[in-house]
Design a protein around this nucleic acid. Structure first.
Length: 317
DNA sequence: AAATCTAGCAACCGCCAAATT
DNA sequence: GAATTTGGCGGTTGCTAGATT
């Protein structure tokens, strides 16, 4: 099906825009408004293709565009939305006033993704959430899933104890998420305005994978709403580092972990899946907010004695 | 000081869906 | 309803400045 190319490359300039070209484009759009990109270049006296003009305008020349210097709050919002929506940059950009999808995409690829990967968080958020080929059911956290430990690929040596604790960490996000889901569906919700305050972030589970077009929240009929965390400890939240992606992940732990129900479920799960007694896993969640996600490594495990571990951070360093 | 490497970013490309003819 | 146009999106490329050797 021969579609007329939006940009016929004959004689058209490519590459970086000059100040003069920018000025021509701005002047034209100020006079005639946006749209009609196909014929805009010749009318505006530009040797560019219409698509290129549209992109230049949308991403750089449009008034009010905010560039550079992403704030910690913006970081958080991007990480959160990327986990929910995947690489739907335009959708993410709608939650960040005056940021363009292109800039967010670049920022993610150049900074956030690497930062999360270096912390190991990609096992939880990046590799799964960024997948654009997941199916819409993959995010639903079910009882069955909750009974099934998820494996993650270690990138350096971990002892059996560390592996167990990392599995526990995965369980935390799953069990908390499932509990949260059931609570969410019963509770009044508050509108999500996209501002993503630190107190309303991550009140539903980190998805194990993100569907192409449907978020976990959508699947559970709670889109555009978040619940107020209710089972979290708040006494130490002030101490957490909210200025980084680790801080975002800390939020999950700090706000969600200290649920006795979660602890019970985790102990049951440990008992079911491993031949150790539940009480051998001691969970000291008084320390659970001093953490940044990275997965546990051998030297992070606090060995109480040969067989007991105090899981101070439960997989969140 | 020069050469090489790397990261960040602007821009391009191809595909898709909605709108229009 | 089919064909075509247009706008939008996400992935990728390639240039450039700064860092490193």
């Amino acid at each position: 099906m021969g579609r007329t190319p939006f940009c016929s490359s004959d004689g058209l300039k490519k590459g970086a825009w000059t100040a003069e070209e920018d000025q021509k484009l701005i002047s034209y759009i100020q006079k005639h408004g946006e749209g009609g990109w196909r014929f805009l270049p010749q009318k505006a006296g530009l040797q560019r293709c219409g698509k290129s003009c549209r992109l230049r305008w949308a991403n750089y020349l449009r008034p009010g565009i905010k560039r550079g210097d992403f704030t910690p709050e913006e970081d958080k919002t991007i990480i959160k939305l990327q986990a929910e929506l995947g690489n739907r940059w335009a959708a993410i950009a709608r939650h960040l006033p005056n940021r363009t999808d292109n800039e967010i995409k670049n920022y993610w690829n150049a900074h956030l993704k690497k930062r999360l990967a270096s912390m190991g968080a990609d096992q939880v958020t990046v590799s799964g959430a960024a997948s654009s080929s997941g199916n819409s059911d993959s995010n639903a956290v079910t009882d069955t899933e909750c009974a099934k430990p998820q494996q993650s690929e270690p990138t350096k040596q971990r002892s059996a104890s560390a592996l167990l604790l990392n599995k526990l960490a995965t369980r935390v996000t799953q069990c908390v998420g499932r509990l949260r889901a059931s609570q969410t569906l019963q509770q009044p919700t508050m509108p999500f305005n996209g501002g993503a305050e630190s107190s309303d972030i991550f009140c539903h589970p980190l998805p194990s994978s993100t569907p192409e077009s449907t978020s976990w929240a959508d699947n559970n009929n709670i889109s555009n709403s978040l619940t107020i965390p209710e089972c979290g400890t708040t006494n130490a939240i002030d101490e957490r580092d909210s200025s980084s992606s680790a801080g975002v992940l800390n939020d999950i732990v700090a706000s969600e972990f200290a649920s006795p129900t979660c602890v019970d479920e985790l102990s049951d799960w440990v008992n079911t899946n491993y031949s150790i007694e539940p009480e051998q896993v001691q969970i000291d969640y008084s320390d659970s907010m001093t953490v940044g996600y990275g997965g546990l490594w051998d030297d992070d495990v606090i060995v109480v004695d040969d067989d007991d571990y105090t899981v101070g951070s439960l997989g969140f360093l």
